[in-house]
Structure formats: structure tokens, C-alpha cells
Amino acid sequence: MTRIAVILSTSLFLLAGTAAHAQTQSEKDECLLASRNCIDQVDDIYRRMHRLDKEIRKGTRVYSPQELKKLQIKLTETQEELKTLERPGK
């Protein structure tokens, strides 16, 4: 009886871990990260900056350090683009 209980509890533990990992992977915004899954998604520059910042705040619980760096670079580029657009005389 205890053997069955141990097997069932181990199985439940493994399934819960797998579900948590799958959920973490689905929280990534692949469109922002790698320009994938962007069907019918057009953002203005302010919305893009907000979305990038929101994804960066998720941190390492969702993204790898390399992915976070990539998102930070995209945010910086978007901010520079906004500064260029707001410059008078251009």
C-alpha cells in the first residue's frame, strides 16, 4: 500500500513540475523576442516600449539572461528611435 502511495505522489510531483515549466515557456512573448507569432500585431512605439518593459520585468523566471539582454537592447533601440522622431527640425 505504501509503495503505491509513493509511486502516486512521485508521479504527481513530476507532472506538477512539467506543467510549471510549460507555463513558464508559454509566458514568453515570442513576437517581441524573435519576431515570431506576430500575426496581426502592430504596435505604436509607446505600446512597444511598454510591452518590452513588461517582459523584461518578468526576469529570469521566464527568460534566460541572453534573452533578457536581447529584450533590453530592443528597448534601448526603441527609445532611441522615439528620441529621433521627437527631435525638432527633422
Results as ranks from 00 to 15, higher is better:
84 T>A: 11
31 C>Q: 00
3 R>L: 07
89 G>C: 04
44 D>A: 04
88 P>H: 10
80 E>P: 07
52 L>T: 01
51 R>A: 03
53 D>N: 14
81 E>L: 10
29 D>H: 02
31 C>D: 00
4 I>S: 09
60 T>P: 02
4 I>P: 03
45 I>L: 12
55 E>L: 01
4 I>N: 10
43 D>C: 05
71 L>F: 04
10 T>P: 00
84 T>Y: 13
31 C>K: 00
15 L>N: 11
77 E>T: 13
4 I>V: 13
27 E>H: 02
57 R>V: 01
69 K>W: 05
20 A>Q: 14
60 T>G: 06
65 P>R: 13
33 L>H: 00
17 G>A: 08
11 S>W: 09
51 R>L: 04
16 A>S: 06
17 G>S: 07
77 E>G: 09
8 L>I: 09
46 Y>E: 13
50 H>D: 13
26 S>A: 12
87 R>C: 05
75 L>S: 03
39 I>C: 14
79 Q>D: 11
39 I>M: 15
61 R>W: 03
51 R>P: 02
48 R>L: 14
79 Q>F: 07
20 A>H: 12
9 S>C: 08
15 L>D: 06
7 I>E: 10
26 S>M: 05
54 K>S: 15
23 Q>N: 08
63 Y>F: 03
41 Q>C: 06
23 Q>S: 06
78 T>D: 06
30 E>S: 11
15 L>A: 10
69 K>N: 12
85 L>T: 09
60 T>V: 09
80 E>H: 14
27 E>P: 00
69 K>F: 12
73 I>H: 15
4 I>W: 08
54 K>H: 14
23 Q>C: 05
52 L>Y: 06
25 Q>V: 01
27 E>W: 00
64 S>G: 03
1 M>H: 09
84 T>G: 12
90 K>G: 11
73 I>S: 14
45 I>N: 14
83 K>H: 12
74 K>W: 05
7 I>F: 09
71 L>I: 03
1 M>D: 09
